[in-house]
Design a protein around this nucleic acid. Structure first.
Lengths: 226, 226
DNA sequence: TAGAGTATGTTATTTTTTTAACAATATCAC
DNA sequence: GTGATATTGTTAAAAAAATAACATACTCTA
C-alpha cells in the first residue's frame, strides 16, 4: 500500500494535477467508469504508467471496468490535500496579482483567498473580486490574527526577498513565487517557483529545433571562447 | 558534439529556463566566470548534471575557470532560439490576458507582442501596454497580413477549442494555452499547456504530506468502492 | 619551468523511471 | 453456470536519468 512513509516522488506529484484536470472535466460527462487506456489517450501518459501512479496511493480500480470517475476524482482530491482548508494571501496587487485574485482555481483546491497586500497607496482600498487590497504594513498583524497557510508572491523582483523574509518571520509555510527571482527560505518553508515564462521558453526551443531539423542550417552554436 | 539530429530530451529542455534565469541575473553582477559547482548552489541541480546538460549542446567551459557568464548566457539564448524574432498574439483580454500583455518576458526571449484579441465589445479598442485590443473577428485577416508565430490563449474554457481551430486554420505554429482545457491540435502545431494552478496543487500535496508524516494520523485514503 | 591546484568534459556506475508482460479477477453473453 | 473478454495491480525488463569518478587540460605561484 504505497506510502510506507515519507515523500511521494516528485515525478508522480507532477502528474497528479494532470489527472485531476481531466477527471474534473469528466465529472460533467455521463461517463461513469474510465479505463487506464482511455485516461492514457486523454493525458498522453501510457496506461501502464497511469496504473502504476495510481497504485502508489492505493487500489482504486475495478477489474474489467476501470476506475469510477467520481471516486477517483475524490481520491485525487484527498491525495492532493484539497479537502483541507488553507487560507492564502496575495502579496503584490499589480496586473498579475490582480489576475490571480480572479483565479477560480483556489476554492476547489481547498484554498480561500483572504487578503491582498500592496504598498502602493493608490491600490490600497481597491476591491478585487470581493477582497479589499490592504497595506503591506498590515501584513504581520493580519497574519497574527489569521491562520494563513500560503502566499502568492507577485511583487517586483527587487522587493521579493525582503517580503519573503517578512512572510517567513510571520510564520508562512508555503510560498507560490511568481517573481522569477531565486528566493532563500528556511528548509521548513515550501517554495514553489512559478516560472511564468517557462512555456514561452519551451515553445521557443522547440520552434528552434524544428527550424534546425528542417532547414539543415549549419549550426553555429559555438561561441568565441576566451 | 551532442545534437547528432533531432530532439533535445524534454528533461533537459525543462532545465534550460532555470539556467537562463540565473545567468540572466548574473549579467548584472561583476562575476565573470562561474563554475558548475556555483551554478549548482544557485539552481539546486548537481554540478555533474549541469556539466552534462551543457555538454549536450557543445563545449562552453574553460578548464579550471568555469563558464564565462556572458558567453554562456548568449549560448543559452541561442540554444533556446531567443535570437529568432517571433510575433505573438494574445487571444482573450480578460484579467489574465491583460496581465500577460504587461509581461516583460517577451522581448528578451525574442517574442514581440503584436496584438490582443477579444470578442467583448467593451474591451475592443482598449489599449494595454501600447497594444490595442481588437475584435476576434479580425483574427484571420490579421494573421494573413502578419507572420504570427505564437498565440497565448486566455479565453474561457468553453471557447478554447473553437478558437484553437481558427488559429490552426489561420496557420499558427505554437500555442501557449492557459485555459486548462485539453486541446486538440494537429501534430505540426506546438502546444504548451500552462497549468496555471499547478503550483497550488504541488504546494497542497506537499503540505498534506507534511501533515501526514508529522501527525501520524491514520490515513483514510480508501474510498468506498462500488 | 615545474608542481600544486582547479574545474571541465566524459566515461562508468547507480538509481530512477518507464514500458512491457502477465496472472488474477471481475463482467457479460449465452 | 461456463467460457470469452476486459482491465486491473504487480512483477520483470528495458530505458532513461542522475550521480560519481576521473583523466585531461588549463592556471597560477614561485
Amino acid at each position: 500500500m504505497g506510502n510506507e512513509m515519507n515523500s511521494i516522488p516528485d515525478i508522480i506529484i507532477s502528474r497528479l494535477p494532470v489527472y485531476y484536470q481531466h477527471l474534473k472535466r469528466l465529472q460533467d460527462s455521463t461517463k461513469e467508469y474510465i479505463s487506464s487506456e482511455e485516461l492514457a489517450n486523454l493525458t498522453g501518459f501510457s496506461s501502464s504508467l497511469i496504473r502504476k501512479d495510481l497504485s502508489y496511493f492505493g487500489t482504486f480500480g475495478r477489474k474489467s471496468y476501470g476506475y469510477d470517475v467520481f471516486c477517483l476524482f475524490q481520491q485525487l482530491s484527498i491525495i492532493m490535500g484539497f479537502n483541507y482548508k488553507k487560507k492564502i494571501i496575495i502579496i503584490g496587487a499589480g496586473h498579475l496579482g490582480q489576475a490571480l485574485a480572479y483565479n477560480k482555481g483556489y476554492r476547489e483546491r481547498g484554498y480561500q483567498l483572504v487578503s491582498i497586500f500592496d504598498k502602493n497607496p493608490k491600490l490600497i482600498g481597491l476591491v478585487i473580486n470581493d477582497i479589499e487590497i490592504q497595506s503591506i504594513n498590515n501584513l504581520e498583524e493580519f497574519m497574527e490574527n489569521n491562520k494563513v497557510s500560503a502566499a502568492a508572491l507577485t511583487v517586483p523582483g527587487g522587493a521579493a526577498q525582503k517580503i519573503t523574509d517578512r512572510l517567513v518571520a510571520a510564520g508562512i509555510k508555503a510560498i507560490w513565487d511568481f517573481t522569477e527571482v531565486p528566493l532563500q527560505v528556511p528548509d521548513d518553508v515550501l517554495l514553489e517557483e512559478q516560472l511564468i515564462n517557462e512555456g514561452l521558453c519551451k515553445l521557443s526551443v522547440k520552434m528552434n529545433q524544428f527550424r534546425i531539423n528542417n532547414s539543415e542550417a549549419a549550426e553555429d552554436l559555438n561561441c568565441e571562447q576566451k
